[in-house]
């Protein structure tokens, strides 16, 4: 064995690997697929760690589920606040499909957090049964987050932004399994996702009628399986949330609860199960936080094609409108 053979081995293997990867990228890009950053516990933790960095800038944690994650842009938010002469660092901590009260509790228990918590939520999301939906994210942040993971996640986000091969649904073994299952090519997403954990739903790329039907059916099914708590029980539970908010307020922070735009059957079902007058409005007198319902602010009443989420083209308008409302209400 000689060095030159090892050199030859490594040179050829590297060339074949790079060539194979480039061919892979070229093929899938030719099929109209694109690279995208993928969300993960580590990406959430990376941004969560920012929320407790000292001010300035003012740290603003965006909590919520998909309506915040796919409805607000931290970049646009930052830009709009800059035009108002403010130095704000918006941090996207919303998690698709997971209501956020565990994250609010986590921030309240973290003495280092003295910023603004913008909580995208509705009365259903305040039901105690769904409080712990983001608990796993907090657990991972508290126990597993490390400098090592931070470096890895930062590098991974860069790679994911440029390589389809970094998408788990394009993993070689996964593709082989799809072929064996006669499932064809991976699903073409209509949801985009960025390194700052914000996303967008591009309904031009989707079958909007099918998504609309499925969304309404899911909600109808949810309400048929989950009886809402009585207004009294719900309000009693909220007293615990009030204490979390008081803790943040005591440190000089602020909390805003924001009921994001929804429409059609969605708002009808929500009203039938959690009538605003007997839930949300009853909370107003006891909650030491600003509470915004989109119906009270015409500029926030933006169309939601699937009844629950705004379209990607409206994110800019929605974000800037919300900044203006927050400014007007002296939160910013």
């Amino acid at each position: 064995m000689t060095n030159s053979r090892w050199l030859l081995t490594w040179t050829l293997a590297t060339a074949i690997t790079v060539g194979g990867w480039l061919a892979f990228e070229t093929y899938w890009r030719g099929q109209s697929y694109a690279p995208t950053v993928m969300d993960s516990f580590d990406l959430w933790s990376q941004h969560r760690a920012r929320a407790v960095k000292s001010a300035p800038p003012l740290r603003l944690a965006m909590l919520g589920a998909s309506r915040i994650q796919y409805g607000l842009s931290p970049a646009v938010f930052r830009d709009e606040t800059h035009t108002l002469g403010l130095n704000v660092d918006p941090i996207m901590l919303a998690v698709n499909g997971h209501y956020p009260l565990a994250a609010l509790r986590d921030l309240s228990e973290d003495d280092q957090f003295a910023g603004i918590a913008l909580v995208g939520i509705d009365a259903r999301g305040m039901d105690r049964n769904v409080w712990e939906m983001q608990a796993a994210h907090i657990q991972r942040y508290r126990h597993d987050w490390s400098p090592s993971r931070e470096v890895h996640r930062r590098l991974l986000s860069r790679v994911q932004a440029y390589a389809i091969a970094a998408r788990p649904d394009f993993a070689l073994v996964t593709l082989i399994k799809r072929y064996l299952n006669s499932q064809g090519s991976p699903y073409k997403e209509y949801v985009t996702f960025e390194r700052d954990r914000s996303g967008g739903t591009d309904y031009r790329k989707s079958d909007i009628a099918a998504i609309h039907t499925a969304r309404v059916a899911d909600l109808r099914n949810y309400y048929s399986m989950h009886t809402p708590p009585t207004p009294e029980a719900w309000l009693a539970d909220m007293r615990e949330v009030v204490r979390w908010v008081e803790k943040i307020n005591a440190r000089g922070g602020k909390v805003v609860f924001y009921r994001e735009p929804v429409s059609g059957e969605h708002i009808e079902l929500d009203e039938a199960n959690f009538p605003r007058a007997t839930y949300w409005d009853k909370l107003l007198p006891i909650m030491p936080a600003l509470m915004i319902d989109f119906r009270d602010y015409p500029e926030l009443n933006i169309a939601t094609p699937d009844t629950s989420h705004i379209d990607i083209k409206d994110i800019d308008r929605h974000t800037r409108a919300l900044v203006q409302v927050l400014k007007r209400k002296r939160v910013l």
Binding site: M1, R5, W6, L8, T9, W10, L12, A13, T14, I16, T17, G20, W21, F24, M38, A165, A166, R167, P168, D169, F170, A171, L172, V173, T174
Partner: peptide
């Protein structure tokens, strides 16, 4: 090191490519 170099190349390429194409 004792096996023929083309086999070494083939094995290394296969493993490297599979690693690169196995995210997630």
């Amino acid at each position: 090191p004792a096996i023929a170099w083309p086999w070494r190349v083939a094995l290394l390429s296969l493993m490297s490519l599979a690693i690169v194409l196995s995210p997630g």
